[in-house]
């Protein structure tokens, strides 16, 4: 039972971690909580759904290669979703950079309402069901039952996170992001185009959120327009748990949150699942005020 709960928690935690990275990336460069990020994740899931629905139109030879098709859908949806992130920043945040601290929060919430209702109107209020693209075989090893899709989710979230680490730490663009995150003013003096870097950060976050959206859509099979609300809150919690602004922290926070929920729901009552998560979060913050991996002293509000 314990290992089964652990595995369940890691699966869902992978999704949380991917979304949490988006919060953390944006927070890193702008010191701002992007409250519309949950909706970006939802849009990503819908983009995946739209693309997957196009698959039957492809030649059968291409369709036969299921993994390739899924990979293509994932990539395309994520790239398209990155555009949403780009425009979100451009419309809702860019003109508000010097404004009072809470102003962008409101425009983010406005955008989030807009996107949610936009999807409801265009895609309908009913749940959308992903076509069964993969036969989801279940395997049993000792006391643990796991499915093929669980393996796909866990491995792809790990690959994506590794990719992000490489991007942030090894590439020129990543270095620029870190520079802007440390000191935007200095970065601009060194010739870094801060606006462009902020756009890139939003796009990277949206890319990952869309990946999470598509994977979760395929895994659970149904999506609806209210998906972003719970996903957003959970991932935000995960990001803070790990120490917001810190990428490793977001990953750790995501997995941890998933495991706490699975164990709490499994061994105690499901009804109080979210309460356990928040209690642990509060406990962690009381002892480590900047999250598990956050800088000492925390960020100034």
């Amino acid at each position: 039972m314990f290992f089964q709960h652990l595995l369940n928690g890691i699966t869902i935690g992978g999704g949380y971690a991917l979304i949490a990275l988006g919060y953390t990336l944006v927070y890193g460069v702008l010191k701002l909580i992007n409250f519309a990020h949950g909706e970006i994740y939802m849009i990503g899931a819908y983009l995946g759904f739209i693309l997957i629905s196009l698959v039957p139109a492809l030649p059968p030879a291409v369709q036969a290669n299921t993994m390739l098709v899924i990979l293509a859908v994932l990539l395309l949806a994520a790239l398209l979703c990155a555009l949403y992130g780009y425009y979100l920043e451009k419309i809702c945040y860019r003109s508000l950079r010097g404004a009072p601290k809470l102003t962008p929060l409101i425009s983010a919430l406005g955008a989030s309402l807009f996107l949610q209702n936009f999807v409801m109107i265009t895609m309908g209020a009913r749940d959308r069901v992903f076509p069964p693209v993969i036969t989801n075989t279940a395997y049993t090893v000792g006391p643990v039952t796991f499915t093929f899709l669980q393996v796909v989710i866990i491995s792809s979230s790990i690959i994506l996170m590794a990719g992000l680490s490489w991007f942030i730490n090894q590439t020129r663009l990543g270095t620029a992001i870190r520079a802007v995150s440390t000191d935007p003013y200095m970065a601009s003096l060194l010739g870094i185009n801060v606006d462009a870097i902020i756009s890139v950060t939003f796009m990277a976050g949206s890319f990952l959120a869309a990946c999470a959206g598509v994977l979760i859509g395929i895994y659970y099979g149904s999506i609806n327009f209210t998906l972003g609300y719970l996903g957003g809150i959970k991932a935000f919690t995960a990001a803070v748990l790990g120490g917001i602004g810190n990428c490793t922290g977001a990953m750790l926070g995501g997995f941890l949150l998933g495991v706490i929920e699975a164990l709490g729901g499994g061994y105690f009552s499901t009804e109080y699942k979210d309460v356990y998560a928040f209690f642990i979060l509060i406990a962690v913050l009381v002892f480590r005020p900047a999250g598990l991996l956050g800088k000492k002293g925390g960020e100034r509000a």
Partner: peptide, 20 residues
């Protein structure tokens, strides 16, 4: 006898528990 949260996607904790 258990309650769930509406709007969630993942019910694996309760599913695992009930299976046993």
């Amino acid at each position: 006898y258990e309650g769930l949260t509406t709007g969630e996607k993942d019910y694996s904790p309760v599913v695992t528990k009930i299976k046993s």
